[in-house]
Design a protein around this nucleic acid. Structure first.
Lengths: 351, 351
DNA sequence: GTCGGTTGCTGATACGTATTACCATCTCTG
DNA sequence: CAGAGATGGTAATACGTATCAGCAACCGAC
């Protein structure tokens, strides 16, 4: 292993050239002007001139070792950060993260080296370089609670993108207020006259999923009937049978692809969306699904979540944040074409 | 500035717990088994057990300071790395870079903090953190020669994505062989009977542009006429006039958007592509342009360029590379619908 | 029992920067 | 002109790891 650097300019070199001590160079560089640190203007100038001449730049590694602060923000993703799917789910988050990092003058360290163990990436592994960063941002649908636990224990500054349950203490996060958004959608459906609602969920473990269900349950108390169906292992036809049998007029669908499939099945049966069945989606697609329908639902403020996660992390790192930072950002409702009124069809027939 | 870390486990702690010296801990950790470094198996086990118990992880900063090697690859882009345009030009490069970095166990450091000066980002600036990385990858249509110069002078390992002219010495790069690809296209056009060719370029400075032109010039010697036109400041109509006046039958167009505009203009005039004019593109679009035409041209192996740039950089860093690394990857020809035969129209009329 | 060789480990030091305690020197005051 | 106070700088040390010269202890051979 040959040292890659032939020899680089250090503060010691500057000091020698300027006829001062290394400490003086450091003091000049850091613009120290405390009560007990004084540098004569001409000395300062001489040092600065020498620095300019040599093109010296401080070694960030040594600086970090000594000062324990580096203006580097780690980004940990549980999936590749640059995925193939162009309309990818992570992309907007990263966009916001990069934007705010640039504004804050921070570099981003992507932990691409994190190995996959048991089907998912791990933060903590042999020889992890987490601590090179001043703090880190965690991206992923599900984040291992044990790893959050360890981050908490180590006192390493971090922020999760998306709300997280406690893991050995409260978890700092910047999330989307799914509960409120779903609640609003339910309210909208009730206003339009819907009384028989159904909630279709896929996964069960993720917080983002639980929050949506919670929002549904809380807002649907005024409904005649509010059922929960799982879509796991069932095809759209079977689900549709189920919905129609109970006289459901509006379905709240967690997974975008399921909503598309359900709409297709409805049409295949000669029924219309939203004439016979209203279908609401609960967030943007996570995988690209082609559809000609403009679904009614809400938009997750992903870019803004990225931005604010960096903002929060920065405040945690520099100590200006008090307590555990937890933010929920509002989701914007999207009025599409898939929410109708339950009686529209009969009204049309009466005409 | 409160120290963010309360207190972390160090080799010294391990050493104390295991009853050995810090040096021994380091030796065990690095699996040293040289002739003059010997650790008794039981000592080694004891140290390893202590490490496991405490959950110790080496501080990458200190490691880097001592060993000058960190398995971190810097990525410098002259534009935001995560751009808004979904079909972005940089994206495939980053995809390849990430993929190979993951395989090589390297992390990626995005220099988002690089400030914009005079309309472009700068690698070297006050307080740059370049040296945190073991080496870096440079992405950008045009890269400042002065900055390359300085990288060369400093002996900092780097690789440019895309061929680069010398800048105070040869520049290591992984590029696409534009000259060969354009040459092949010219050959194809000649085979189809074209004799009057035109080359339409936009910018002049970038190496990628010069390579294409060079390929054109070298291969077009067999043609009756091979002209160069600039598209800068001219609209598609004027260019088309020019082409038709000279009896040009095939246009090699550097910029994808220009090709689209030219095809539209041709059609507006009641002429057909490729019946009256063949239009060839010289690489993928850099900005998304909607078109229903499948252009004949070639594909830049961008993902592979990303992968290999990391591969090359890694070999430069670990010293296994001899000399300056320069690679040109072949571009894949794409047979679309925009290359015809110059006499097809008259043949059709004779029938 | 002395001498060369081997084994297993440690002490010292380097890496480059930040910080603090402290030391000269000069200036002012009574 | 002694003492206090201000001024301008330096030496020393810390940060955590890697490396290497070298030391002690033991072994075997003559």
């Amino acid at each position: 292993m040959v040292p890659p650097t032939p020899r680089r300019v250090t503060q010691r070199d500057i000091a020698r050239l300027a006829g001062v001590s290394q400490a003086t160079v450091s003091l000049v560089l850091n613009n120290r002007a405390d009560a007990d640190v004084r540098i004569a203007p001409e000395t300062r100038d001489r040092v600065l001139r020498t620095i300019a001449e040599t093109g010296y730049a401080a070694d960030p590694v040594a600086r970090r070792l000594a000062a324990r602060f580096n203006r580097i923000i780690g980004v940990f993703t549980y999936e590749p950060a640059f995925p193939s799917g162009s309309r990818d789910f992570f992309h907007p988050f990263l966009l916001g993260i990069e934007e705010y990092a640039e504004r804050a003058g921070c570099d981003l360290l992507l932990f691409t080296s994190a190995p996959v163990v048991d089907g998912r990436r791990r933060i903590f592994h042999q020889d992890n370089r987490l601590r090179l960063a001043d703090g880190c941002i965690l991206l992923g649908r599900e984040i291992d609670a044990a790893e959050l636990h360890r981050l908490n224990r180590d006192g390493f500054p971090y922020v999760a993108v998306g709300r997280r349950d406690d893991a050995g203490g409260p978890v700092p996060y910047v999330g989307a207020d799914y509960a409120a958004a779903v609640g609003e959608l339910v309210g909208l459906a009730l206003t339009r006259g819907h009384r028989r609602l159904a909630y279709l969920n896929t996964e069960l473990t993720a917080e983002s999923s639980a929050d949506r269900r919670r929002g549904f349950v809380a807002a649907a108390t005024a409904a005649e009937s509010a059922r929960h169906l799982t879509t796991v292992g069932r095809d759209a036809e079977a689900i549709l049978d189920d919905l129609l049998a109970e006289g459901t007029t509006v379905a709240f669908v967690e997974d975008f692809a399921t909503a598309v499939a359900l709409a297709l099945a409805t049409r295949r049966r000669g029924l219309s969306v939203p004439g016979d069945l209203s279908i609401l989606t609960l967030g943007d697609p996570t995988v690209p699904v082609p559809t000609d329908l403009a679904f009614t639902g809400f938009r997750i403020p992903r870019e803004e979540m990225g931005r604010q996660s960096v903002e929060v992390l920065a405040s945690v790192i520099d100590g200006s944040a008090v307590g555990v930072q937890q933010r929920l950002l509002p989701c914007e409702l999207v009025e599409g074409d898939t929410l109708g009124t339950p009686d529209r069809r009969s009204t049309a027939a009466e005409r």
